[in-house]
Design a protein around this nucleic acid. Sequence first.
DNA 1: ATTACTAATCGCCGAGTAA
DNA 2: TTTACTCGGCGATTAGTAA
Lengths: 233, 233
Amino acid sequence: MPAGSGATASTSPRARGESLGVLKFLAQVGADHTPVVVTSREVGAKLGVSQQAADRYLVALEKRGLLVRTLAQRRQRIQLTPAAMDLLRAEYHLYRRIFEGPARVTIEGTVVSGLGEGRYYLSQPGYVVQFSERLGYSPYPGTLNVRVDGAALRTLSVMAGWTGIRIDGFQASGRTFGGASCFAARINGRAGHLIRPDRSHYKDVVEFIASERLRDALHLKDEDPVKVDIEEP
Amino acid sequence: MPAGSGATASTSPRARGESLGVLKFLAQVGADHTPVVVTSREVGAKLGVSQQAADRYLVALEKRGLLVRTLAQRRQRIQLTPAAMDLLRAEYHLYRRIFEGPARVTIEGTVVSGLGEGRYYLSQPGYVVQFSERLGYSPYPGTLNVRVDGAALRTLSVMAGWTGIRIDGFQASGRTFGGASCFAARINGRAGHLIRPDRSHYKDVVEFIASERLRDALHLKDEDPVKVDIEEP
DNA sequence: ATTACTAATCGCCGAGTAA
DNA sequence: TTTACTCGGCGATTAGTAA
């Protein structure tokens, strides 16, 4: 039995492609950081569709929360929302990966003492089984905490867009354990993982896990400098 | 009188968006540098369309010369063509510009003597009028030639994708004068333009023009080092 | 000018199916 | 399994038009 277009969801396959085209165009003309007067005719001309179709694209994008229009008399001013910029940024990263390869981040920091809670968390069977399965090893039950300065923190911020190895949260002993993301890393050359809890309380400290106790393996003590390499997954 | 879809050209508006999606996906899975076994079902799943639609996309892209398929028995191996990579690269640059701003290139080189032909060419009225109109000044009739080494040459290669200020070719005195592209540049801080003839005979020499004689203004002689800054138009 | 609604249309889509 | 064709039909598209 023949069927019609399968585009039943709010975002149809074909509409998605055009959405990106519209957002791309708007970002190019500066709607990414300030409201810009753009007529639906201009958008249509740029995309090779009619004014009417372009207008519907704009209305749909507004409904999806990707742009805001302020209709002053007859001319609309358009500004992209952060959600739209996230979308475009994801696209940018995708292309950058194609042409530049996976991004790599290298930072330096200093070893600091944690609150000892790393040992408690990493001993939870709910985590241990996931680490074994997804990282390929059972981490030593304790994290190496590294404090980074502002510059390194900014460097690390590019990781915000990365999707690491997922460690899911779970319930045990009547309480909730949160999820986290892991990223393969080298700490002074040693293989391990940066672990980023979904809800971290640290701001300038990053945590690492490895199969061995990194402090011992690398002969580290508090305030020692360490060099960390992380590659995009 | 209402009309149907206006998508009459070989590349319909909606198909264009999907094309990019397909090429993007193929590049991600490595078809940019080696033939990759990809089924139409996989492509369809990735794009959220049926196997049939995905297959049509692939056939259309092959017809447009953007990919080559080798159908071995039942599995097709797909590789992207340079034309497709150009398309994706253009897209990449567009996004990079949105997020990183115009690219800038800084290189160093050494002053060399040209063949004196710069003076002859730059004296041609056909060029002079275009320079005045499009660069905003009449260049001193002579080019500053700068030799760059291999590393700088690679740095310059990113300019290959840039579109500069166009200088059109023309006919005069019974012969043909070729076109060129100009790029705003700073030579040791002095404003000028890098001029890139469409058909250049140099490989490791770049030419600059400015309103003044750069050799005099900067007190340069052969073999002197110069630093050049060029910003994406 | 604009934005945006309505009506009528063709083109893209996916199921079925062949090779 | 694949790739890829036919074909009925939905719906995105455009022209016309109102505001």
